[in-house]
Design a protein around this nucleic acid. Structure first.
Lengths: 256, 256
DNA sequence: ATTTCATTGCGTTCTAGTGACACAATGTAA
DNA sequence: TTACATTGTGTCACTAGAACGCAATGAAAT
């Protein structure tokens, strides 16, 4: 078992590579079929779900560590990534889980840096669902998307971390543009609106939404319209990256 | 030298008490004489200034660690405290400074947890200036207030940390009430306005400010007026703590 | 005692932005 | 050819915010 060898090494010698006591957990949001999704792992430990996570190399920027973890789970580079909170309750111990896990793979030891206390840096990421190739890490047997409205049970405080991430994303939506990292190159106005509604968890007025989002200047209407719909064909739009980034810095205002 | 003994212990055995690789830095804001101030230490190392900081006990909540550090520098309990960013650049090394420092107090060693890389958790705090008794830690020779508009040179990336803290405070001001932790029990409207202007770094219209802040319902006007001013006496106000906390949770809107 | 004057408390006007809603245009399916 | 769901554009009433006016106050100056 190559995996088991790697794992044993990780438990016994990981502290030579990684910073002790610090982990990174990523809440990866994707948007698909009018639904906001989050990428979760299925642990080999007991089948419950966990946020993709990892550790920080001894000479690695913490943001780079998060990027690396994301790349490993999604295959994507250059992802929108945001640090949102540090979870530092001494009670959030991973010791039991890790001890049980080691027992499962037949390693006997009561000394491992993984038994120590960890504080975890929470990041959230926005990715283009269609471009992601989910792949589990070596302590997981699956890596799958879940609707944020139908979340399975999660280990430790991962549900709490997710909740905080969503709240932060909603906050961010209130005064920064969102969408560039969640949608494809071109999209229709109803599609963009659906994204906003899904994140915010409420309906918005179609006409007011259009007026407001166009007023920001972050969109450019294309000549092309969507084909094959049994009603008036909506225009495609794309993001005007110059203005989008400007709006990211400056901050906009609320959506209803 | 009792201090030196303690220090030597800290360098050689601190890792038995504290989490490795993790520090906490606090940006402590106070308001005095129409000026926003920040509390800084003067290092024994080279006289440059530093943010009050410290480490996390092995079984301590990270927020509790920040509270403890604040208590040690200001004498105050129950302070408004907010985690705002983690600084995790591997380049932000404290090794040189710490080596030099040890040499200065006559300790010869090239092994100390303090030579390792540190990531630092940034917190900012709002305190009542008049209630603070500044006291330096054992690597500092002074603990003093500075106007945020006349900051001295600071070690490492502490200036950068300060800048981020101020930006976060200003953001916070945009949709949460601020003042309860920075002003005394009672204050006049011009005093409160001055606080907002100082934090935001710009003038606000006196009449609109009053209308808006009163509309939030977080203030209660007292019967008492300020005595001894050579013009119309302004009323005193106090915070209506119920509504203040409600507004903290719900979020308000912008100030111009 | 009277006047001066900076400052305060309260009010008005004007405008831009928001929410609610109407209506014609479009393009596939019946 | 008609039906119909959906889109693009426009209107209207309402509100919040920015800019500004003016009388009241009360210690200090005359």
């Amino acid at each position: 078992m190559k995996f088991d060898k790697e794992l044993k090494d990780h438990y016994l010698k990981g502290h030579e590579k990684f910073l002790r006591h610090i982990s990174v957990d990523c809440v990866i949001f994707g948007f698909h079929q009018s639904d906001l999704k989050v990428l979760l792992l299925k642990t080999k430990y007991d089948g419950r779900r966990a946020l993709p996570g990892g550790f920080i190399l001894k000479n690695e920027h913490i943001d780079a560590a998060a990027q690396r973890i994301l790349k490993e789970r999604t295959g994507l580079d250059e992802i929108f990534l945001q640090q949102f909170h540090v979870f530092g309750n001494p009670g959030r111990s991973t010791k039991k889980i890790n001890q049980q896990f080691l027992k499962n793979i037949g390693v006997k030891t009561n000394k491992s840096w993984m038994f120590d206390r960890f504080i975890t840096l929470g990041y959230y990421a926005l990715v283009d669902f269609t471009k992601v190739t989910p792949s589990p890490d070596n302590i997981s047997e699956a890596c799958e998307w879940f609707s944020i409205y139908e979340l399975p049970e999660m280990i430790l405080d991962h549900r709490h971390i997710f909740d905080e991430a969503l709240e932060n994303l909603r906050m961010q939506l209130n005064f920064h543009p969102v969408g560039y990292n969640l949608l494809g190159k071109k999209f229709t106005m109803p599609e963009l609106q659906k994204l906003y509604e899904t994140i915010l968890g409420k309906k918005l007025d179609r006409r007011n939404f259009q007026r407001k989002i166009l007023a920001t200047g972050i969109l450019k209407r294309l000549e092309e319209t969507k084909k094959g719909v049994a009603h008036k064909a909506p225009f495609y739009y794309k993001f005007e990256l110059r203005n989008y980034k400007k709006a990211l810095k400056a901050g906009m205002h609320y959506f209803e």
